[in-house]
Nucleic acid binder design. Sequence first.
DNA 1: CAATCCGGTGACAACCATGTGACGATTGGG
DNA 2: CCCAATCGTCACATGGTTGTCACCGGATTG
Lengths: 226, 226
Amino acid sequence: MKPRILVVDDEPEIIELVEFNLKQAGYAVTTAADGAEALKKVRAQKPDLIVLDVMLPEMDGFEICKALRLDAATAKVPIIMLTAKAAEIDRVLGLELGADDYLTKPFSPRELMLRVKKILSRSQSEEKPKEQLRFGDLLIDLPRHVVAWKNKPIEMTATEFKLLTILAQRSGRVQSRDQLLRDVWEYDSLIDTRTVDTHMRRLREKIGPAAKHLDTVRGVGYRFVE
Amino acid sequence: MKPRILVVDDEPEIIELVEFNLKQAGYAVTTAADGAEALKKVRAQKPDLIVLDVMLPEMDGFEICKALRLDAATAKVPIIMLTAKAAEIDRVLGLELGADDYLTKPFSPRELMLRVKKILSRSQSEEKPKEQLRFGDLLIDLPRHVVAWKNKPIEMTATEFKLLTILAQRSGRVQSRDQLLRDVWEYDSLIDTRTVDTHMRRLREKIGPAAKHLDTVRGVGYRFVE
DNA sequence: CAATCCGGTGACAACCATGTGACGATTGGG
DNA sequence: CCCAATCGTCACATGGTTGTCACCGGATTG
C-alpha cells in the first residue's frame, strides 16, 4: 500500500512541484491550501505524513501543527515543516510545536524526498527489514555493507550495492528499469534508463558466478532469482 | 503494568505536551513543578523513569539529580535531563550527576519518545553497555575516557573520543556521515557533513597504527573493523 | 526472411567523493 | 589578557565512479 502524504501550502507552484515529485516517487498525494481544509483532510484520510508550510493565510502552520498534536487521533502523524526563515527552526522543532523535521525555503526536491523517506521509514519500521540476505553461497549484509560469495567479500561501488540489494529484497519479482531508477537513484529521473543496463553489466562482472541470480526479462526489466 | 514516569518542569506548556505524548504512548505519567514536590513524588511513587528539566525555580535540576543519587532508595532511577544549553551536557552526563540521557531544548516529542523507550528497555533488561572495548592492541575505556594502543595511552580530544567510541561500539556496521553527526554531535545538523571527514583524518593521525581499524566505505560512510 | 527492437559491451569524459593542509573563530586556562 | 588547544569550514588535488554513447549480435515480429 502506498504511503499517503498530505501537502499543505497556499502557493500553487510549490504544491505542484512537491506533488509531482512525491507522486514520481510512488506516494499517494493529496493537497490542501489552507488550515481548515488541511485539518479536515487529515481526519478524513489519515495520511502517513504531512508536509506543512508555515506561511499560510488565516491559520498558519504553527497553529495547524498545534491543533494536530492536541487531538489524539492526529497527534502522532509525522510532520515536515516548510519555513522561509532559519530563525523559525527552533520553534518548529521545539516543544512548542513538535515537528519531526523541517526544510528552509528555497529547498531542492531532492532534499525533501530524502526527509520524506527518512521519516516514513522511521515511523513504518515497526517490523524491521532483514539485515542479511542469503541465497545459497551469496550473502548480502546491509548494515555492514558487504557482499560475499562463498564467504569471500566482493568489492563493489555504492550504486552497485544498492542495485543488487533492491533486486534481492524483491527476489522473484521483475523490476522495470524505471522502477529501479526510482528506487536506486532516488528521483533523479533525468537519468537514461539504459544506464541501468550498464550498471547491471558491471554488477554481473563483479559478482562473477553469483550472476546466475540476475535475470534479464526481455522487454520488461530485471529480476533476482534464488 | 504500565511503566511510571515522573515529569518535572515548571513550564505548564512543556508539562502539557510531554505528558500528552507520554500518555499517548501508554505510560502512566505524574508531574511535579518544583524540586521539593519532585523528591516527594519520587519517594512515594517509585517511578521507572524521571524526565527532569535543569532550569527550575529554587532547587534546580542538578541539585535534584544529586539528591536522588545520594538516597539509596532512589539512586537507581533512570533520569533524562532537559537542558537549554549544550554546554551543560558534560556536567549532566558526567560522574557528578550521572543522568542517563539528556535532550537539549528545543527538541521534538518524537526525539523524547525515542530516548524514553531506549532507557526503559535498557533498564528493564538489565543490559548495561560495555565499559571497555578491546580490539587486539587497541583498548577503549569509556568511564576513564582513555584510549590506549599496546598499553600506551593516546591523547585525543573529546570529539575524537566520541567519534571513535561510536564507531567501535557499532563495529562492522557502516555509519553514514549523517548518522555520525547525529550521534557524535547530537542534533546539531547545522554542521557540514565534511566536518566528519576532517575529524576522521585527525583521529587516524593520532591513533597511528590502530587506524587500520577505520575503514572508509566510499559513497556511504565509515566503518570500524576488528 | 528482412526489418526492427532490445539488451550486452567497451570506451570515455565529466563528475564526485574523499584525503589533506591551512585558516579563522572560539574557548578555557594560566 | 594572551596563548594554546580545539573545532568547523574551505580550497585543492586525485583517483574512483558514473552516465552516456556507439556498436553489435541475437531475439522478435510481420
